[in-house]
Write a protein that binds this DNA or RNA. Structure first.
Lengths: 115, 115
DNA sequence: CAGTTCTATAACCAGATGGTTTATATCGTC
DNA sequence: GACGATATAAACCATCTGGTTATAGAACTG
């Protein structure tokens, strides 16, 4: 997976408002105003959060008259989870068995990116 | 788990440099300069990244003479993974069976936080 | 067509982030 | 005690983030 998408996904998840939005969307589609209702913040603020979620591919949007219903897209969540799975051995069992882990990690490890 | 810790954990993971550092630490303890070597950035920049990881509880540090060896702490990774697990049903199987999910999500969903 | 509702955009602001360079502290060695 | 190596801290800067208010667009309703 492209690192940039992982970046965007983890960044999107690093905000409690956005996690709450995802939680709400797990119960079904919702419009922007429906999503904004529980929060003590303006509607444009929620629209911005939705854009962040959209950029990460976590939310897609439809069209229903003047409403733009939001739907949860879980594929990036799976990618994030897959990344985390590589570290499962660290809190499980014997703190050993990191054999298969290394090969997987090296692919991103030696990048030398500047940012 | 406290939302702030989840915030810090996901935010820490949203940077490829920091993920690479964690990958390196999965192979064992390392000093700051060892960690900085693969990257095209100054050593203080890496120290800053380490501070972010430390704040998220993902890295702990020891003392070995003038070296401050870093060690991976995976517990926050488990917390992040646990959060993601709640959405597993979304990419698996039938896109149904979200029953048990709701109760779990409601705890964070209705916060109404401002930031 | 006028008004209302839903959403997006623009302009602005404070604070965080990610990097830099320079300086300072800590520790072992000679 | 001076030097070299390791790491932190400080000051600075550009950009991003998360919020605001105000405005504009898009689509239904009377």
């Amino acid at each position: 997976m492209s690192p940039d998408l992982l970046d965007a996904t983890f960044a999107a998840l690093a905000d409690p408002t956005r996690r709450a939005i995802l939680a709400r969307l797990a119960t079904g589609e919702a419009s922007v105003t429906e999503l904004a209702a529980p929060f003590a913040m303006s509607q444009p603020a929620v629209s911005k959060h939705l854009k962040v979620l959209e950029r990460a591919g976590l939310v897609s949007r439809g069209r229903d008259a003047q409403r733009r219903p939001c739907r949860l897209e879980a594929r990036p969540l799976k990618a994030a989870l897959d990344w985390l799975e590589d570290y499962r051995d660290y809190w499980a069992e014997s703190y050993q068995r990191l054999d298969g882990l290394l090969a997987e990690l090296q692919s991103e490890g030696g990048e030398g990116r500047t940012r």
